[in-house]
Design a protein around this nucleic acid. Structure first.
Lengths: 327, 327
DNA sequence: CTGAAAGCGCTTACAG
DNA sequence: CTGAAAGCGCTTACAG
């Protein structure tokens, strides 16, 4: 059996109350008792049971993370930073990969509620579920508009879309196509699309957007990309919704004998460390991943402390154009 | 206030005991009571508190994951699969990214213990800590020998190292260098090195291994790679310890005007989806990531159920050579 | 078929 | 400075 507080108490010859006080450094305790208790804890290799503590305190110091998949470099890196920051601040991270499937997300949210997490950071697209439980839940969204009252942290998507599109124009592209997630998702990524469309129209060009399903399913992504090449035979510039998609575009281009960048120019989005290492040639818009993590956690902790009204509903962080050799 | 079982009981006009029974589907309850209780739960939007349940049951259904960093595609993908499998089986995942730092791992293990996780899957190198707590802990290691009694799941590292080295030889390389983690870590990856050395010696060549620090620190990785190129001026084949390192090698080769594959051939290790998409040219040894996840979770659950003696201490899963254009 | 009581391991007023 | 009691929200013998 694992030792408990009463075992420590017995061995130190004090009451459980006193052991608890030593543990929490609360109230006055004589140095001598303190030492005896500490020694007893060591002797029997005692560790406090945080489950019991949480039950009493109504505070678990656990936060839930719901992302499509940490297998994607952007979410992997984001999760890494968030977890690190949380650990430093005494919070633990319960991880959920929903692949953007609505039914999964529903189950995850319920699971997190049952486990009494103090808050949730969400990077998936589902609006309804969170709202439903809102009263009891501190929530921050990353790059998703979940509701009118949930703070959103994101990169400056409009600026990113603008930088990407302007670069392609500057480099002489005439027939530029954009790949983006489904329009109905209402994510701030729609501002990437908006920027693309604005810039295109300003220079008298017709914007064309192909929509990639949100399910992170390679096959359907590949399908859309092939469709794009099939239908847009004159395409000479592609602004992809993320770097992995951009990589698939490069691959398909190669397969079709299109030379990059002379024949076709490609810009991605995200610019994670891994992408930068594996595919440094890719021109991309770099999101400030660590800053996004930092801001999200900070806002969430404030929400947990009950400072709802004072939280900024929108936090836009600066992007950076990284020019490689695909443009 | 969140509703609790007694609130449900009051509204349904029964005792808390009965509500608990309905919740757990235990014992005989009249259909009518069941319906009334369910209705009451709906009415007041009741969710069971799993913290209280865990306290009573001495079972949290949480498992801890300790990996260097989910920002690395291999661990990101592995974590994705593990989390998905766990969720299907009713387990939740508490995530820890230690970057292989021993002091962090120590803190993480203690944190997981305090949180009464049912088991831990470890993919970091530290031996001591886990042993210390062993009595109370179900543990499975991925690609790490943590102790003589902890089951290890890994890809067939020897076979992988053999395939990689033999391919480089077959392609006509004379001066092949291997990059691997620190030898003192005692990970099964040392069999990659062993295979490399065996194959080299069998063909009358001198094996040369450069050691990459385990800290996932780009700068020091880059330092070693530059050192390799500086010192091994005739190098015409490199077998890297993972795909990200291999990508850095390719980059450095380019910087130095070495043409791949005519001038220098490169083989990586891991072959994750992301690598395959971002850098399909890379020849690599593909680990069966999903199988590794599946096996690890299965073994851990068996360990949790107390079946220690019967567990295989070594599970080696088959690798696959993926030939790209870097060899 | 249903309920009152005790207890999971901890903490915090309250009393001394 | 220290301890006995009550309670966090749940579950499970035990009794009826």
């Amino acid at each position: 059996m694992k030792p408990k507080i009463s075992d420590v108490a017995k061995r130190a010859g004090v009451s459980p109350t006193t052991v608890s006080r030593v543990l929490n450094n609360r109230g006055y305790i004589s140095e001598e008792t303190k030492t005896r208790v500490h020694q007893a804890m060591k002797d029997i290799n005692y560790f406090p049971n945080d489950v019991a503590r949480s039950l009493f305190n109504k505070r678990t110091n656990v936060i839930g993370l719901i992302f499509p998949t940490v297998a994607n470099p952007f979410f992997g890196e984001l999760t890494f930073y968030i977890e690190n920051i949380c650990t430093k601040l005494g919070y633990k991270v319960l991880l959920c990969n929903s692949l953007n499937r609505v039914d999964e997300e529903e189950k995850y949210v319920e699971m997190l509620m049952r486990n009494q997490v103090d808050g949730i950071i969400v990077g998936t697209h589902n609006r309804g579920i969170i709202n439903y439980h809102k009263e009891h839940l501190a929530v921050v969204a990353i790059d998703r508009n979940l509701s009118e009252t949930i703070p959103v942290v994101s990169s400056d998507n409009y600026e990113g879309g603008k930088l990407a599109t302007e670069l392609l124009l500057k480099k002489g592209c005439h027939h530029i196509v954009h790949l983006n997630g489904p329009a109905e998702l209402e994510t701030p990524a729609k501002f990437r699309r908006k920027a693309y469309e604005d810039v295109m129209r300003q220079s008298g060009k017709e914007p064309i957007t192909y929509e990639i399903p949100a399910t992170f399913d390679r096959r359907s992504q590949q399908g859309i990309i092939e469709q794009l090449f099939d239908e847009q035979v004159n395409v000479d510039g592609i602004f992809a919704s993320d770097d992995v998609i951009a990589a698939s575009v490069l691959r398909e281009a190669k397969r079709r004998g299109r030379d990059v960048p002379s024949d076709l120019k490609v810009v991605g989005y995200d610019g994670t460390e891994v992408t930068q290492t594996l595919l440094p040639e890719l021109t991309t818009i770099k999101q400030p991943v660590e800053q996004i993590a930092q801001q999200s956690v900070e806002l969430l902790l404030q929400a947990i402390e009950g400072k709802f009204g004072e939280l900024p509903l929108e936090t836009k962080l600066p992007v950076q154009l990284l020019e490689g050799s695909t443009t």
